[in-house]
Design a protein around this nucleic acid. Sequence first.
DNA 1: CCAGATTTGCAACAAATGAATCCTACTGAT
DNA 2: ATCAGTAGGATTCATTTGTTGCAAATCTGG
Lengths: 299, 299
Amino acid sequence: MENRGMEPKGPLNASIVEAFDLLPPQLQTAARYMLDRPDDVALLSMREQARRAGVPPATMTRLAKRLGLDGYDTVRELYAGAVRAGTLGFAGKAGVQVEAQALHGERALAAEMATALSRQIAALAEPAALDRLADAASRLHEARRVYCLGLRSCHAAAWHFHYMLSLLGDKTVMLDDAGGTGLDAIRDAGKADALLVASVEPYARATIEAARYAAERDVPVVALTDSEVSPLAQIASNTILVATASPSFFHTMTPLLAVAEILAALVAGRGGAKALAALEHTEAQLAAFGVHLPRRNGR
Amino acid sequence: MENRGMEPKGPLNASIVEAFDLLPPQLQTAARYMLDRPDDVALLSMREQARRAGVPPATMTRLAKRLGLDGYDTVRELYAGAVRAGTLGFAGKAGVQVEAQALHGERALAAEMATALSRQIAALAEPAALDRLADAASRLHEARRVYCLGLRSCHAAAWHFHYMLSLLGDKTVMLDDAGGTGLDAIRDAGKADALLVASVEPYARATIEAARYAAERDVPVVALTDSEVSPLAQIASNTILVATASPSFFHTMTPLLAVAEILAALVAGRGGAKALAALEHTEAQLAAFGVHLPRRNGR
DNA sequence: CCAGATTTGCAACAAATGAATCCTACTGAT
DNA sequence: ATCAGTAGGATTCATTTGTTGCAAATCTGG
């Protein structure tokens, strides 16, 4: 993040991209950082950027020279100029832009979807929503095990939540229908566990039934759903509401995923240093398996 | 610490104006400079600002303390934050909220994540991004079949794209590693097909290799990735960039899902009435199977 | 496998930064 | 006229900054 954005145009992006392939690995990570967070380049000291990029300070200087500039100060002046000119500005304008300049057809739809999503997600920062998120995170944190359930359109969010927490340990269990075994694993859930369940209209019967089953067994149910009066909301002990309306004729699941990610982050945050250690352990394991392409440094 | 939603410029403007009359002359010139050039406050060193304002450096420090802050570094951090968020206006409202009403700990993190996501997604409405989305949609629409690939953290987005389009017919094929069969199905892809592939840092080796394989066979590759210089971007014929930065220590996949949804909507839109008919057909089938709860369900 | 070139990290450096201190100049009330 | 009390400037100090030199590590071609 930071900010940074979908297409963070830095003044040097062109040069960087062009030279990138011929750059040695460390310089690539530095270059990459500059591409990813142009506002940092303008606002932070060089050493601080080096710290965040995970390279020694010298690398930043070397990169600057490699790009044909005098030193890193020159780089920063360039990016500062872009900030002043508003070239770096991400969105914001976009919202206005969409309404002002008449976009037509496909582009208009895409732009409308993007701005709609943006608003819906921004709504999650409202105090009421924050309270619900914090409460839910607390429930999930206290649970011995968290069962994750989401079918059909809600599968992506539930699965992703499970995936994120699985990086920190084996606290979560994904409930899915693979192999026709149904959602049997929910039978193991007890009072000390919790069920994270996502469902939006039209509510999948299997989802609701599983949630009901869990609730009857006094398993705390954390529901991600689309309405205060959804069948899930009535079962659940915690409910988080997400918007699903969209300019297209599909429902959107993006706010749902956003909530899933925020919840996962909060739960992980409660884990504190232990969670971080677990994450590093996982990463080390993955690295040992060669799952990922080599990345010349961490962070 | 009052905050009215949308001050035109600096985050301290209100405090400054309020205190201005009671300020000694030299501090006033310093204060005026801060009011006039908020950009400089964020981008220049304190001494440099003092130089330009025509006051000794000490004055700037004194002004900062006079405003109730620790020192001038604090001032600059504030203005830097405003540049990151404020210059763009729009969802920044919530961001201001975070700073204004002292949110602490968990809620603050949640709020920051939400606003960051909101901004990252809003960035998708920028013209450059819209172009890329439209081009990619065109590619996918023309393809006979669309193979969808995303492993690990990118699985959710790839799967959801597949799911959405699967509601409209069987044009898409999901490539996953289930059952250890690997990504073999990609072998069936040909020139007339397309591969939609998502991968962000750290790039999963299998994903990149599969994409490379496809590209070598002249299968058009539409890449959803996080950087212009990601290994995917170099392979792909179409690239769409998404932000993954997040205040939490996880990468966020929400913008990725947003792109997936927008793409699916665009592709569906190109299908026109036929797509809609297919959707209704699917829904009828699902209803026949009793997959969903009856719609009128409340209370 | 090795020589040669390149890349990389560390330590050192001078220059700058932001803040603290000291001291003079000024104010206004008595 | 005196004398607090503040303002403002210069000086100083401990940090931090951006850069460079050098040696170890790494890669490359023969």
